[in-house]
Amino acid sequence: MRRDGKVENIAIEMARLNIDVLGISDTKIPGTGKIHTVKNCIVYYSGSDCSKERYGVAIAVSQRIEPAITNVIPISNRAMMLQINTKPRKLNVIQVYAPTADKDTAVVNDFYADVNKLYQLTKKKR
């Protein structure tokens, strides 16, 4: 997604296919933040602080969904969550980029710990 035109192409295809929420993996965008496209799409992304990002996740939403977004939770370059105020309940959209089987056990364990953090944030308060 770091190459010119990639984000705009995603926005065009989302509009063409009438998609309001789209999860994206392997974005290779460093840091966290959001990108506004000229095609009325907003891309929230989560990567590492390294300028040579190897992984990264993102969630793209149409402009009509953006006002309903209540929280963006970037956990790591492999996991993030968007919380959307829908009715009758809030919607949690989790995007992950799982490590492949050849990765170290520590990388896999970190990934599952990140997913667990997000999962804990989705539970109802009692």
Rank of each mutant, 00 (worst) to 15 (best):
R54Y: 01
E8C: 04
I65R: 11
T122Q: 09
K125S: 06
G5H: 08
D110T: 10
I73Q: 12
H36S: 12
V93H: 05
N71L: 10
T86M: 15
Q95M: 08
H36K: 13
I73R: 10
K124I: 12
I42P: 03
A68G: 01
K34V: 10
A58N: 05
T122N: 09
V72T: 12
I12P: 00
E8Q: 12
V57I: 10
Y97N: 09
D104W: 01
L17R: 15
S76E: 00
F111Y: 07
V43S: 04
K52Q: 12
R64W: 10
V93L: 06
A101V: 05
Q63E: 15
D104C: 08
A98M: 08
R16I: 13
A11C: 09
V93D: 05
K103Q: 10
T27D: 01
N9S: 15
P88Q: 09
R126Q: 14
T27P: 02
L118D: 00
P88S: 07
I19C: 06
I19H: 12
A60G: 08
A58S: 09
V57E: 13
R54S: 11
R16M: 10
Q63V: 06
L118C: 02
K39D: 11
I29Q: 05
V93F: 09
Q120K: 14
V43I: 15
A68C: 09
H36N: 13
S51P: 05
D114G: 02
G23T: 12
G31Y: 07
R89T: 08
K34G: 02
N109F: 04
S46K: 05
N85Y: 00
D104T: 04
K28F: 07
V108K: 12
I29F: 11
V43A: 02
L91F: 12
G23Q: 11
R126A: 13
V93G: 02
M14Y: 08
D104H: 12
R16D: 10
K125Q: 12
A60W: 04
R64A: 00
A101Y: 00
T70D: 05
K125P: 00
P88V: 03
I65Y: 07
L82D: 01
K103W: 05
F111V: 00
I73L: 15
T32I: 11
Q95E: 09
S48I: 03
N92I: 01
G47I: 01
R54D: 05
T105Q: 11
K39H: 15
N85M: 07
K123V: 10
P30H: 14
S62D: 03
R89G: 03
L118P: 01
V108W: 01
G23N: 12
M81D: 07
D20Q: 11
N77Y: 07
I29L: 14
L22A: 08
P74C: 09
P99T: 02
A58P: 06
V7K: 14
V107N: 03
V108N: 06
P30S: 14
D4S: 15
S62M: 03
Q83N: 14
D49G: 15
S25R: 07
K52T: 06
D110C: 03
I29G: 12
R54C: 06
M14I: 09
Q95K: 07
N71I: 00
N116V: 04
G56I: 03
